[in-house]
Amino acid sequence: MTFAVDAPTAAGIGAAAVAKTQAAHSPLIAVKDVVKIYPTVAGEAVLALDHVNLNIGEGEFVCLVGPSGCGKTTLLRLLAGLDTSDHGTSSLAGKALNGPSEEVGVVFQQANLLPWFTVMENVLLPLRVGGARKTEQLIGQIKALLKVAGLEGFENKYPYELSGGMQQRAAIVRALARDPKLLLMDEPFGALDALTRERMNAELQRIWMASGKTVVLITHSIDEAIFLGDRIIVMSPRPGRIVRELKVDLPRPRVATEMLGNETHTALAREIRMLLE
């Protein structure tokens, strides 16, 4: 079975995507001319991000790919409010992003659950700290999310009693606890085995389609980027720059087995591969 999609040439996709992004009206996230310089221990300065411009629309799923040290994580940390840029501005829904925001949820590389809390206590943590509002509605939403994430019945377990995949799903639920507009994910499935990872991708797609959040996901896996992304941003290392934006024209929900041999998929994968060499 194949997708009922016309597969344009690889070059065509790239050009179309760039044109489309620039035209996006009032994006949820606007990153303008952002520069980030890191001092190293040796005393040199590393240009981690070199005049990066990026617009992300509401509800969009954007994947950042690029070799190690290309500034993907730096960009994500800026959006998470964990770092500040040395030049340029970034904004969320028109408001400048200068620090952590209630409207941003973050999923780390490791599940990063607090081992002394149960799953329920972990996913409720965002409502407990930082002066967050703790409404019945949000708690109800979290319970529903736990169900979607297949964690029902595990609420009172401790993280060490869960598999790696379950821990990471709990971390995703926690990131969504405050009902943020934006979900940032830094290689969330990198530590999982290939099969679990594939299943997690499908589940993330399901959670994303159900929640309608805007997602920015960093990944090393080209397949993961194509499977999940509406748009793929390819970055180059040192100085970190955006070299290409590619639109993924594949219908949803996407199914992993149908990706194999799909023409659009193959063309995109080949192009990204070539950009990364």
């Binding site: 998470a80 964990l82 620090g99 973050v106 607090l114 700290v129 930082g130 002066g131």
Partner: peptide, 19 residues
């Protein structure tokens, strides 16, 4: 990573200490 988690959540110093 755990301290950064609390930072992302805008947790107060006391909350980060206690939790």
């Amino acid at each position: 990573e755990r301290i950064e988690l609390m930072k992302v959540l805008s947790a107060s110093r006391l909350e980060t200490y206690r939790l």
